[in-house]
Structures are given as structure tokens and as C-alpha cells.
Simulated scan of single mutants.
Amino acid sequence: MTEERVYNVLFLCTHNSARSVLAECILNREGKGRLRGFSAGSQPSGRINPFVRDLLERLGFPTTDLRSKTWDAFATAEAPRMDFVFTVCDNAAGEVCPVWPGQPVTAHWGFPDPSSAQGTDAEKAAFTADVFRQIERRIQAFVSLPFASLDRLALKRRLEDMAR
């Protein structure tokens, strides 16, 4: 019996309070143990966006261990080796990222920022739910990729195509 490889995926956003946290949670559910999600930020806010936390809790995601953390924690020799690193906000995509051990496949998947939502609490919650659905669709497409049969270049091309 051969063990199926587990792929580690890091989602980056400047403040690590909304989009990257959503992506981490969604991947950990959709990846069904085959893919493991992590998230971090270049300038972590130190808190999870309250609308993000509320939505995740309503949808049954575990939230007790969620925290906003720096991406430096994932650039050390002791950190889990990442197979994929995705920026999910335009600011993080333009920043100089650390050098990730193991040369993971990288891509930029930009999504609107729930923290920028305007209006009533209900409108902010609806905006956050819409961003959640966008991220969820992208991750569902990602987890369906045949990782073992695609070479690095083909994987990179597929990931870039998903962003369009």
C-alpha cells in the first residue's frame, strides 16, 4: 500500500486577516487530507477579520486556532516545506517575498478584500460571503488537478489560467 503524498499550500496576504485565512480554511476542508493549507502575511494585523471569523463559524469551520501571523515563520528550515505559495491580494503580490525552502510553485490569485467592505454590517457580511464563494470555487478547481501527473511547468500554467 502506498501512501498518497500530502501537499502543503501557503496563502499570503498583507495582513493575514481575511482572504488568506479563508483560503487556508477552505483548502483544509476541500483538500480532504491530501492538501494542507497555511496562511500568513507580510504585515500581519494580529487579528482575524470579525466578518471572516463569523462566516467561518456559521459554516462549521474550526476557528479556535486561527491567528494572524507573519510569513517569516514559513521561511525557516524548521517550517513545513511548501509545495505551493499563492498570493491572494494584490499588495502581497507586489511585495518582495522571502525565499521559500524547496522552491514551491507560486501563483497570484487576487480576490477582493473583505476588510474593505463598506456599508452596514449585513452588507459587509454579504461581501465577505461573496469573496468566500470566489475563493472556494478557485480552490475546488485547484484540488481537482492531477498533481502527480503534471510537471512543474504544466502545474504553473494551470494555476495561472485559474487566476484569469
Rank of each mutant, 00 (worst) to 15 (best):
Q134M: 15
A18M: 06
E3Q: 08
A107P: 06
D54M: 09
R29P: 04
A122K: 06
L56H: 01
S116C: 05
I135G: 02
N91K: 06
F111I: 01
V21K: 13
L159R: 06
T63C: 14
V9D: 05
P44R: 01
S45I: 04
F86C: 07
R158L: 06
F86E: 03
F74E: 03
F86D: 03
H108E: 08
Q140V: 00
A129H: 01
R152I: 11
Q118V: 08
A40Y: 14
A77Y: 04
I48Y: 13
Q134L: 15
A23S: 01
S20A: 06
T76C: 00
P80M: 00
F127D: 09
E57L: 06
D121A: 08
L22M: 15
V6E: 10
E24F: 03
P80T: 03
W109S: 00
S17H: 10
D121Q: 08
R67L: 02
R138M: 13
V131A: 00
D161A: 15
S116V: 00
S39A: 14
T76E: 00
Q134W: 05
E57F: 01
L155W: 03
W109D: 01
W109C: 04
D65M: 09
L27M: 06
W71C: 10
P104E: 07
T70M: 14
P104L: 03
E160W: 07
I135C: 09
L55A: 01
G41C: 06
D161K: 13
P112K: 11
V105C: 15
L66P: 11
M162W: 11
E4N: 08
G60H: 07
G31N: 00
V21N: 08
T87G: 03
R164S: 13
T70L: 14
D72R: 10
V6W: 04
V96S: 11
L155G: 04
F147N: 03
G31K: 02
S45N: 02
A122E: 14
R81V: 13
R5F: 09
P114I: 02
E4S: 13
D113F: 11
G46T: 03
E95N: 14
F84N: 12
Q118A: 00
M1R: 03
R5K: 15
S17C: 12
R81W: 07
E136A: 10
D113G: 11
T128V: 10
V131I: 09
L155V: 05
F11P: 06
P98D: 05
Y7L: 10
A122W: 00
F111D: 02
S149Q: 09
F11R: 09
D161C: 02
G41S: 12
W71G: 03
P62S: 14
S17A: 15
N91T: 12
S144R: 07
V6N: 04
Q43L: 07
S17F: 10
A163W: 15
G60R: 14
P62F: 04
H15V: 05
S20F: 09
